[in-house]
Design a binder for these strands. Structure first.
Lengths: 93, 93
DNA sequence: TCAGATTATCGTGATATATTAATTTATTGA
DNA sequence: TCAATAAATTAATATATCACGATAATCTGA
């Protein structure tokens, strides 16, 4: 437990990006499904488009997911292996 | 990605408890050291006692750690196996 | 029971995060 | 180029979290 806890900021930011029910749901969905576009998430989660988009923006900023455009849609998928590991810890089954 | 993302609240709360540099530092220290009292953390992290105590309170509320009193001191240790798994994912070495 | 040591809680100002309607940007097909 | 669709951004408000001094509570030895 050294004094420079500042080195933990990066990990903390990754956890912070995951630490929301909607974002966890999105991440787990991506884990199982492989990828998904925003409209589909919006339909599944029954939340406004801007809300979904904001959550994706947070996940993107943290390097957790990336989006690949396919025509009008953008397909998101998990980008980060640490995220996958953490999801396996949280949802083993 | 089902509509009831509310089921993810519990996991999100656990992650939220971990998602802070100081708390991550404390948790990792407890992981390596086994247990630790508040004064020692305070000395190591060079933060006010109330700040440390507040962070420990958050970790306790989330079920991440538990404290065992030993005289004047209270020794904290990790209570939750999911936490241990998550820490292993974050800090493999 | 009193003093000293250790930890917890309270109060509060500062900072960060969440939500969502409205708007903007990007892309495609007609 | 226009209209329609998909997604991102903006802006405003509401809510939550952070840091930390001050204070309270708990325990022990004298």
């Amino acid at each position: 437990m050294e004094k420079d806890f500042r080195q933990y900021s990066e990990s903390a930011d990754l956890l912070k990006a995951m630490a929301h029910p909607v974002r966890l749901c999105i991440l787990r969905g991506l884990m199982q499904k492989g990828d998904c576009n925003v409209s589909h998430m919006q339909h599944c989660l029954d939340l406004p488009q801007s809300t979904i988009s904001m959550h994706l923006q947070k996940l993107r900023a943290a390097g957790a997911v990336e989006g690949v455009r396919n025509g009008l849609e953008i397909n998101y998928r998990i980008k980060n292996d640490t995220i996958k590991g953490l999801l396996h810890c949280l949802f083993p089954e």
